[in-house]
Amino acid sequence: MKIQINGRWYEAREGEMVLDVLRREGIDVPALCAHEAVEPYGACRLCMVEITHEDWGGWKGNVTSCLYPVEDKLIVQTHTEDIIELRKTVLNLLLARCPNSPEIQKLASEYGIDTTSFVPREDADNCIMCGLCTRVCTQMGFNAISVAGRGYGREIATPLKEAPPDCVGCLACVKICPTHHIQYEDIGTTREIWGRQFELVKCKQCGKALITREFADYLIENRDIPADYFDICDDCKRSGTARDFKKLVHWEEKEEAEEEVSA
């Protein structure tokens, strides 16, 4: 099927969301709470676009592109005056919530907002409540963290605000967070995240610490990964392969040389 975006036609696939097409085609629409690893959620409201269709009798509306499934001949506008106004309002609010976040500051300034017109949050952290961290943690099957509270006091938290028993220290939440709010620290062979400490597995060859014992065990048990997979790190595995490859090449050379001799 085809959909029209800002006057040009693009190929779209059944089951995709409008945002998927926008991203694939490199059309610049801000979207902070959508990630290919998890189901769309519609939290940040930045990805709003205008849609219409020739069969809709002139009706058009503004929708979140991350949650709107494509349909044939859908007509999308990503930067109408209304849409830009909507995004400005959202960014103005996000900037009040997270006045210190470089990512939010940058995005807001792209839309001409340098300071929020609302009262900035006191003691603000950089969490925009996009829910990516909790969703990816659930998607991975750990369910270690969740949204706690309601209304103004809503926050991402560990159960009972204690070290989360179900966390394996995989760092998926850290990596997916659009505003780098989630902190962790690797000191020697210890990783600390969410107030919990993990021992890191060391590579048997170079000694580099890369993954927590808990996460390695989880992957070995649930993802069909060989039990000794994490004994040696990827870098050492690669140089190991290179060595083997060299041996192989030299072996062939040797063969050739021997052949020449015998010929």
Partner: peptide
């Protein structure tokens, strides 16, 4: 919160989320 989580098979984080909501 902990007993409910293990008895009903609901992740601890979700029990906490509901309890605080």
């Amino acid at each position: 919160i902990k007993e409910t989580s293990s008895a009903l098979g609901v992740p601890l984080s979700q029990v906490y989320s509901v309890a605080t909501f």
